[in-house]
């Protein structure tokens, strides 16, 4: 992971915050390298081109729904109304660069990207996320800090913005648990 840096306002994409697309870092920025999403053409289970065959592709697909889910949650956005940060979520080894402005994810890019600055990183293993997002997570897999204590998650960089808005970021990370287990049309 690159070292943390201060936020750069230049990195903000002021796209419609309620419906943010998820560009690949390769598509978004010259000089970066990233993974093209591909089909599982060789039967290895590697459907996302990351080389992972342990379901991280599915986790990445869940992550790509995150901006819509978060921005559609008015209470969560209100809790994060002072959040202005560029951060990194490594979901099962797949990096997602998030720009958050006034509690809304205004841009999310899937990496990896070379020398992309971020203020802090939340990294969670693939197994950690799968069990964390279960409808009723098991003891020890049910909270971000339970995961860090057992070595399934790491927090790195300048943790100030994370700790100042800890409830917001914990709920952001847990959003898929609720959304994946809500029948369509009931949310």
């Amino acid at each position: 992971m690159p070292p943390p840096t201060e936020d750069s306002e230049d990195s903000v994409n002021s796209a419609d915050a309620s419906n943010v697309s998820v560009p690949k870092a390769t598509e978004a920025e010259e000089g970066t390298e990233g993974a093209e999403e591909t089909e599982d053409t060789d039967g290895t289970g590697d459907t996302d081109g990351t080389g992972d065959t342990d379901g991280t592709g599915e986790i990445a697909r869940v992550m790509e729904n995150l901006p819509g889910w978060v921005n559609g949650d008015a209470a969560l956005v209100r809790r994060g109304r002072f959040v202005e940060v560029d951060c990194l979520i490594e979901a099962g080894g797949v990096p997602f660069y998030l720009s958050i402005r006034e509690g809304r994810i205004t841009r999310m890019e899937r990496g990896p990207a070379l020398m992309r600055p971020w203020r802090f990183c939340i990294g969670v293993s693939a197994e950690g996320l799968r069990r964390f997002w279960a409808p009723v997570p098991e003891p020890g897999w049910h909270d971000l800090f339970a995961l860090t204590k057992r070595g399934e998650a790491v927090l790195e960089g300048d943790l100030g913005p994370l700790m100042a808005n800890l409830r917001y970021f914990k709920e952001l990370l847990a959003t898929p648990r609720n959304r994946l287990n809500t029948p369509e049309g009931e949310d």
């Binding site: 049910h142 909270d143 339970a146 100030g160 100042a164 800890l166």
Partner: peptide, 15 residues
Amino acid sequence: DVHGGEVCAALVSGL
């Protein structure tokens, strides 16, 4: 720079 009540609650919420 971190609200004590908010961060204490957010930390222990997962317990």
